[in-house]
Every structure is written in C-alpha cells, then in structure tokens.
C-alpha cells in the first residue's frame, strides 16, 4: 500500500514538473494525495486517475511553457554550457602549456572568462531551482533538485582537471 502511494507520488511529481507547475503548488498536490489516500484507503489511481492525467487537470489554466518553448530553453542551456565548457577547457590547456594566447586573447583571460561564466551559471542554477517541499513538514520532497547545481559544479571542476592533466602530459 505505502509503496503504491509512494510510486504514484513520484510519478505525479515528475508529471507536474514537466508541466512547470510551481513548486509550492506541487508540494500541496502531493500532500493532498497522501492525506486523502490515508484517510479513505483508496488506491491513488482510483481516486486521482493516472499521474499524467491528474497533472494535466492541476496544470489547466496555469501558465506554463509549451513543449517547443521547453525544447528551445533546454537547447539554450545546453549551448551555453557547451560554450562555457569549451572556453574553460581551451583556457586551462593554454595556461598549463604556457601559451601566450588562446582564442586570440591572453590565455589567462580566456580561462578567467570561462571560470566566470561557469560560476555565474552554477549560481543561477542554484538560485533558480526551487525545491518542492511538503507543506506539512517543510521538508524537501525531491532531493534530486538539490544536488543538481553541486553536481554540475563537480563535473566542471573535473573537466578542468582532466584538461590540465592532459595539457601537462602531452
């Protein structure tokens, strides 16, 4: 029983996230499902319908991104990430190899630009991620979102490390 509700809530969380429903509202909806099912002993699917359908009902009349706007935004983020990563990689490689310039500017400046871009990006990511909280306890429901920014930062530092290592060896 408990695992059924937990599984349903997880699927519903994903469906609501995909519809860009505000995190506070998502927290309320998940807690309502939990509370209602505990009270009535109903199967969440019988009471609320399939997670995707219920997410559509909840999202109705709320402003959200269309699928194409979603794709454009994700592509934009990926492109920015790729540019920042590439500039940083070229910068650190040039600095380690004692090159004068990289991308037509002093090597240190290329590296500084890359690192600045990465820091700004990670800070924006960390600020914009709004964690879904359970309104009953105030505790986060969805830990994955919390780890996203630190994970990206770790990946970025690893990239710099690998580039520096390769530049020193080759």
């Amino acid at each position: 029983m408990i695992t059924d509700t937990e599984k349903y809530r997880r699927e519903l969380l994903t469906a609501l996230r995909l519809r860009d429903v505000e995190p506070d509202r998502i927290g309320e909806v998940l807690a309502e499902v939990d509370s209602h099912v505990a009270e009535t002993g109903e199967d969440p699917r019988d009471a609320f319908g399939a997670p995707a359908d219920y997410a559509r009902v909840v999202g109705e009349g709320r402003r959200g991104l269309t699928p194409s706007e979603h794709r454009t935004r994700n592509a934009g983020h990926a492109l920015m990430g790729a540019v920042v990563g590439a500039v940083s990689a070229l910068g650190i490689t040039a600095v380690v190899r004692d090159d004068e310039t990289a991308l037509g500017v002093p090597a240190w400046l290329t590296l500084a630009l890359g690192v600045t871009g990465a820091v700004v990006g990670v800070v924006l990511l960390a600020v914009r991620v709004r964690v879904v909280r359970d309104p009953r306890t105030g505790r986060p429901v969805d830990w994955s979102q919390r780890w996203f920014a630190p994970l990206v930062l770790t990946g970025y530092i690893a990239l710099l490390g690998v580039c520096a290592g390769l530049a020193a060896v080759l």
Partner: peptide
C-alpha cells in the same frame, strides 16, 4: 473523486473564496 475535488478546492483558493491550512491528524499524515 479526489481527482475532481482537490482541483476545485485549489481553484476556489486561487480565487480567494476559501483558505486552507494543514493540521495534525490522529496518527495519520
């Protein structure tokens, strides 16, 4: 069904016609 009721309550709350608050249940969530 819950899937019909709670969205209606949510809309009534958005429109400022009802307010909501969470309270401890007896052993429940």
């Amino acid at each position: 069904k819950g899937g019909t009721l709670y969205p209606i309550l949510g809309r009534l709350e958005d429109d400022g016609l009802v307010s909501s608050s969470w309270r401890e249940g007896e052993g429940g969530p």
